[in-house]
Design a protein around this nucleic acid. Structure first.
Length: 877
RNA sequence: GGGCGCGUAGCUCAGCGGGAGAGCACUACGUUGACAUCGUAGGGGUCACUGGUUCGAUCCCAGUCGCGCCCACCA
């Protein structure tokens, strides 16, 4: 027996364990492979709503395809998340008064591994509560031995192909984390600052040239001043020199188109070592690049003595004060501008000249662009392709080295003379060195590690054992769909495309489904500082994983962010309760699956109708899931369960079930069958409750739903049954509405007189008499017109007038007013249709079917109108 | 500066060339009923604005206004 109330905790407990123990999460059977790569959450992570969204979507697809007979692999794992993890462990060390430097590299790495073993499983366990069904037996971590080998193979290969190289370039330097970061890890922030104007004196004493800057301290590294070649104001100065104040350096004035006459003073100071644009200008004019910063962001020994060792922001004040004192500070104006910040450290980023490893992303991007252009990989929704193209076509060299300790160590070794040996193992590097030097030389490995996203870029094949040639790699690559948010298209999707095509020769996935971000119910991004974080685990505790999953899916319209408040989840918990109670009703009425039940062979109208409705729902859900329209899938099944099955089918079936007999038996079997199909259709969306109900209710089933086949198509909707039930629903609804409007007491039973019934209507009324008695509170059904016109309620359905005598329950004037409103509305409708039909252009140019439809609507409308007028006439006097 | 998206009922949003929809909220009535985590009924909208295309526009196109996002940008 089902419990009287639905308790999500009881329903969900232990199910994940049971499914996994039965091996349900592993690819099974000989079906066509279907693979989704789980975007590996950071080991430092704990489940947030973004995870809940993306993993619900993935699990829904996985369960759907698993039921459809595909050999499904959902490949799970976690990411070592270089900077994030290192920061977490360093913070932990700090509470012990310890630092990573104090510990030393080796001990620190051990410490991180220990942390990972202890805390790294949090998110995995939380995923289980959501009902996620990946193949945990294949769980991977980006720093596993196998994946590390893949990283080294990829690095070495790209190096040998000239697609990875070491270069001294300006990089984004994080002065707090002491590492380079990629362009993507830099976030721009609008900041209120100042624009300082300085007059640099000309060497020949003939005057000065005014420059403006937001970073005065960089002037200590200036090696030129640039003006636009066509700027008349400065043309005569080109080729002359200025003497840099405070420093005394003689620097040239050059003509360069980078200089924008509209901006600042039109003359721009050039600091090649600390500005990306200036670096280019400097290169064009052979200006020296003087690095004036230390890795901490303090000034180094290249600047005059008084400034050495000052932090860059201290130095800024000092430089301004000194320039002011020297009389070269011309003006200071408030200035709003964007300042680059590190996305992890939240500190201002400095362009900094260092040796780093770069990946030639431009070359790798070309095949990745082509693959999307010719649809070998499709974005859903398609609009994201332009974002992808835009970025890929303007891609810059990717800085892949990081000055961190946690990550994949760069497989490069240096000889005493600086010669570089890149190899997959130290032994190979030693071998190379021996050949190179003709003898043993001490080698030192590059201290840096790789950008975390380098290993993530290999994920679609490194997890499938590449570079080993495994069966899984053969079978599941290319994968079917990647599910992810737009926020990591650049970080991850683009890079997987590049690496997948380069190493595997094929795209990593055939489709990329991009979903929105989760926001709170007001559309605000969830953030700790706003205090509007919704915790998915708390929602699961309160309402169940099924309700949370369904709420997410039902809210997930393509191309939109998902706004999700607690009320929404609560609403869908109510839906689960509704389903539970429907199942309970069926159980109480002994609706059990009948052996050999054939849905297309049911005889009674009601049962034929619900079978048809279920069939339509099955198609709608299937098509919606195939097209990643999760909200439509959710809506279709929701509508069916609540509006069709509960509100009408079960209500209309009650008299039949109570009466017993053959019809009741067919109805019991049909109800059980429908419920069973509903559990199947709902299972990918809400796995727990469907499994629980299936298990308890339909205990003839040998297998759990997770392994059951997806429902087959059933016969096309039975149109005669549909028409009849539609008629019945309309009649009952009309009577209920009229009664409510005229405030007929809810308990009052009225007679129903059918004014001019034909044989079909007469038969229908006989058939549905018990339903009408029950749902429309009808006392008796008669033909013709009742003797009294005093106090009647009249409705018209399908060209038949129904009169319900009220015996004093109602005010005649109110009934007149009600009929009047209906007549008016109908007249407006008919007039609108007439206007169309009277337009020869419409009749001539609109499709015949549309014209025909309008004609039908018009004739139905006028017929009803006539009868309503007749009804009015009967009570008018 | 470049690109993208969104303005539909009080709120959150579907729909997207031929009858304006849902959920929540609201109002009235209803509890021996599978379900009050419920039922029945109801109120509520010049589908942002202006033009255009069309026999016909909430839907397509152009523009305007408003909101949001991404990329670029430290003179």
């Amino acid at each position: 027996m089902l419990d009287k109330t639905y308790d999500p905790a009881a329903v969900e407990a232990g199910r994940d364990d049971a499914w996994e123990a039965d091996g349900r999460y592993q690819a099974a059977g000989n079906g066509e492979p279907y693979c989704i790569m789980m975007p590996p959450p950071n080991v430092t992570g704990s489940l947030h709503m973004g995870h809940a969204l993306t993993f619900t979507v993935q699990d829904t697809l996985i369960r759907f395809e698993r039921m459809r007979g595909r050999a499904v692999l959902w490949q799970p794992g976690t990411d070592h998340a270089g900077i994030a993890t290192q920061m977490v462990v360093e913070r932990e060390l700090a509470t012990e008064g310890e630092t990573r430097q104090g510990l030393g590299r080796e001990a620190f790495e051990e410490r991180v591994w220990a942390w990972k073993d202890e805390s790294g499983r949090t998110i995995v366990n939380q995923l289980r509560r959501l009902g996620a069904s990946p193949d945990w037996s294949r769980e991977r971590f980006t720093m596993d031995a196998g994946l590390s080998a893949a990283v080294r193979r990829a690095f070495v290969t790209l190096y040998r192909e000239g697609l990875i190289y070491k270069d001294k370039r300006l990089v984004n330097w994080d002065c707090q984390l002491h590492t380079a970061i990629s362009d993507l890890e830099v976030v721009s922030q609008e900041t209120d600052g100042h624009l300082w104007h300085f007059a640099y004196p000309l060497e020949d004493g003939s005057g000065s040239i005014e420059v403006a800057t937001t970073r005065p301290e960089t002037m200590l590294g200036d090696t030129g001043v640039a003006v636009h070649p066509e700027d008349e104001r400065y043309r005569y100065l080109v080729g002359k020199h200025v003497v840099l104040p405070l420093v005394g350096r003689r620097i040239p004035i050059v003509a360069d188109e980078y200089s924008d006459p509209e901006k600042g003073t039109g003359a721009v100071k050039i600091t090649p070592a600390h500005d990306f644009n200036d670096f280019e200008v400097g290169r064009r004019h052979a200006l020296e690049a003087i690095n004036i910063l230390t890795s901490d962001g303090a000034l180094n020994d290249s600047v005059p003595e008084p400034y050495r060792g000052l932090d860059r922001f201290e130095a800024r004040k000092r430089v301004v004060a000194d320039l002011d004192a020297a009389g070269v500070l011309v003006a200071v104006e408030p200035h709003r501008h964007v300042v680059p910040y590190g996305d992890r450290s939240q500190t201002p980023i400095e362009p900094f000249l260092t040796d780093q490893w770069f990946c030639d992303a431009h070359t790798l991007a070309q095949p990745a662009i082509a693959a999307v252009e010719d649809d070998r990989t499709r974005f859903v929704p398609k609009a994201w392709e332009s974002t992808y193209f835009e970025w890929m076509r303007n891609i810059q060299p990717w800085c892949i080295s990081r000055q961190l300790w946690w990550g994949h160590r760069i497989p490069a070794w240096y000889g005493p003379d600086g010669a570089i040996f890149v190899a997959e193992t130290e032994e190979e590097a030693i071998e190379q060195a021996r050949a190179h030097y003709g003898g043993e030389r001490p080698l030192e490995q590059d201290p840096d590690v790789l950008d975390t996203w380098f290993s993530s870029a290999l994920w679609p094949f490194s997890t499938l054992d590449w570079p080993e040639e495994s069966q899984e790699l053969e079978r599941f690559y290319p994968t079917d769909v990647l599910v992810t948010g737009f926020d990591i298209i650049f970080f991850w999707v683009a890079r997987m495309m590049m690496m997948g095509l380069h190493f595997m020769g094929e795209v990593p996935f055939r489709e990329i489904y991009i979903h929105g971000l989760v926001r709170d119910e007001h559309g605000q991004k969830m953030s700790k500082s706003k205090g509007n974080i919704v915790d998915p685990l708390q929602l699961i505790d309160s309402y169940g994983a099924d309700a949370l999953r369904f709420a997410i899916l039902a809210s997930l319209a393509q191309g939109r962010d998902v706004k999700l408040g607690e009320a929404r989840v609560q609403g869908y918990r109510n839906f689960v309760t509704k389903l539970w109670n429907a199942a309970r009703f069926c159980e109480l009425n002994e609706c059990k699956p009948a052996a050999g039940f054939a849905p297309d062979a049911v005889e009674t109208t009601l049962n034929r109708w619900i079978v048809g409705e279920l069939g339509a729902t099955r198609e709608a859900v299937t098509e919606a899931l195939e097209a990643y329209r999760f909200n439509e899938a959710a809506q279709a099944i929701y509508r069916f369960v609540w509006d069709r099955f509960c509100d009408w089918y079960l209500e209309l079936a009650k008299p039949t079930l109570e009466a017993g007999g053959r019809e009741a038996e067919e109805t019991q079997a049909t109800a059980a069958w429908v419920l069973d199909r509903v559990f199947h259709l709902l299972h990918p969306l809400m796995p727990f409750v469907t499994e629980a109900l299936n298990e308890q209710l339909l205990d003839g089933q040998p297998n759990s739903l997770i392994a059951q086949p997806w429902p087959e198509s059933v016969q096309a909707a039975d149109r005669t049954a549909g028409a009849e039930v539609d008629w019945l629903i309309t009649l009952i609804t009309e009577i209920r509405a009229a009664r409510a409007e005229l405030r007929v007491p809810a308990g009052a039973r009225l007679e129903l007189w059918a004014a001019e019934p034909n044989d079909a209507v007469r038969a229908r009324l006989a058939t549905w008499r018990p339903a009408l008695e029950r749902l429309a509170r009808i006392a008796d059904i008669r033909e013709g017109l009742p003797g009294t016109t005093d106090g009647t309620l009249q409705v018209v359905v399908d060209a038949v007038t129904y009169v319900l005598p009220l015996a004093g329950h109602v005010d005649l004037a109110e009934e007149r007013a009600r009929l009047d409103r209906e007549i008016e509305k109908l007249q407006r409708d008919v007039a609108a249709i007439d206007k169309k039909l009277d337009n020869p252009q419409f009749v001539a140019k609109a499709p015949a079917a549309v014209v025909e439809e309008q004609r039908e609507r018009r004739s139905a409308g006028t017929e009803t109108l006539e009868r309503l007028k007749a009804a009015m006439a009967r009570i008018a006097s």
